[in-house]
Amino acid sequence: MGWEDRDGRRYYYRKKRVGGRVVSEYVGAGLLAELSAQSAEQDQRRAKIERRKWRKTVEAEVAIDRLMSDAGRLVKALTDATLAINGYHRHKGQWRKRKGTKT
């Protein structure tokens, strides 16, 4: 990738995105281009590893949040149920004592 053959010679171009379009930027030919290509390849490999690592981190974080949400849902249900059987009802999001019930 990045290498282009012109008149029997190989030239190295760096591709980059500018304003939603892919633009080729001339880097060079020969040894300088080889080194530049190797360096770009290394950067890509490193970025790929970083992306994978980040994806795993996010997945782990999402799993923790999901578990906490499920636990929270159950705790809320148990709280609401305890209140309901103790004579409370929900009025506009607030718990209020039902008329005529003793705690």
């Binding site: 249900a77 609401d80 149920a81 009025h91 039902r98």
Partner: peptide, 12 residues
């Protein structure tokens, strides 16, 4: 299932 019963009890 527990929450479904709960929702029915939450009214006045």
């Amino acid at each position: 299932a527990f929450i479904a019963v709960l929702r029915r009890v939450e009214c006045e």
